[in-house]
Amino acid sequence: MTTDILAAIPSPPQGVWHIGPVAVRAYALCILLGIVVAVYWTVRRYVARGGRAETVIDSAIAAVPAGIIGGRIYHVITDHHLYFGEGRDWVDAFKITNGGLGIWGAVLGGGLAVWAVLAYKKVPLAPFADAVAPPILLAQAIGRLGNWFNQELYGGESEAPWALEIYRRVDENGNIDQMNGVSDGFVLTTVQPTFLYELLWSLLVVVLLVVADRRFRLGGGRVFMLYVAGYTFGRFFIELIRTDAATTVFGDIRINSVVSAVVFIGAVILFIATRSRTRETPDYVAGPAPDTDEDNDGEPTRQ
């Protein structure tokens, strides 16, 4: 099928490059770039609040793998039809680089890991959550570029100028391989680029979070609550546009729409209920100083 339109957003001709036996996937690179940017920005925000940079690094070491595992588990559960049943190979559930990470599983898995690290260090969670909220959402926006390379997570057919071209991709033998192949130039269809809508919405919410945080000196986890409320508000409507196969509940409602609505309501209630909270002092944010002792030369020795 071809579409005669004046303009459209092209998809990348491929999402995988092979360097010898190694497959370099754009989706994985986008995820990694998002993580690096999020860690760097979180260090700056957390230190500005009074925290220690090493706390962010230690938390990231635990949160990144936990977040990826949690995100994958959520995706596999909510989109189980892609991996289990007739004609499916359950081994594909472990192929994370092919795409498929559920943000709420990632936030939950990474959040639990961070909570464990901070509890061990006896450092309060709320200031860290407020510092990490905008960087997390920025990382999500960067990660959405991976969906562009994979030609996935889009809506129905469209002839709008911002519609996305979906190319036919083939392998070296000319067989259709949408995930690993290279475009032969044939446009299968043009669709609503819902990944782009979510990317732009996320960037808008990032700006709003930073402005609100500076203007009102938010504390007590309220920046994180705003992040959750802002992201889920947009995600609810974007999810309604998507046409990719998804698990549905309550008849024909996509499960991610339901989750977004429930989480949005919870975040708004928490934000209102904690309106008396203020920005924490730097001493409180940093937590107890690392244990030290003086050796015979008067130099501090870590225990």
Rank of each mutant, 00 (worst) to 15 (best):
D184I: 08
A131H: 12
K121Y: 04
A163C: 09
L153D: 03
D184G: 12
Q140T: 11
P135W: 10
E159V: 14
A133M: 13
T189C: 02
T194G: 09
P193H: 04
V191P: 02
G156K: 12
G185N: 06
G174Y: 09
G156P: 05
W162S: 11
A126P: 03
P135N: 11
E172L: 10
E172I: 05
A133S: 12
T194Q: 09
G181R: 00
V132R: 03
L188P: 01
L200E: 02
A139P: 03
A163Q: 07
F128G: 00
G156L: 06
A126T: 12
S183D: 10
L138I: 13
V170C: 07
E172W: 01
F195Y: 14
G185H: 07
M179E: 14
I166Q: 10
K121G: 01
E157S: 14
F195I: 08
N173M: 07
A141G: 15
G185W: 07
E172C: 01
L196V: 08
L153E: 04
F195W: 14
D130Y: 02
N180P: 03
A160P: 02
E172V: 11
A133E: 11
P135Y: 10
T190P: 05
T190L: 04
I166D: 02
L137T: 03
G156V: 06
N175W: 03
A160D: 14
D130A: 08
T189V: 06
R144T: 00
W148L: 15
P135S: 11
S183C: 11
N150R: 08
L164E: 04
E157K: 11
L137H: 01
F195E: 11
N180G: 11
V132I: 15
A126R: 13
L145K: 04
Q151V: 10
A126Q: 07
L137Y: 01
A163V: 02
E159P: 01
F128I: 05
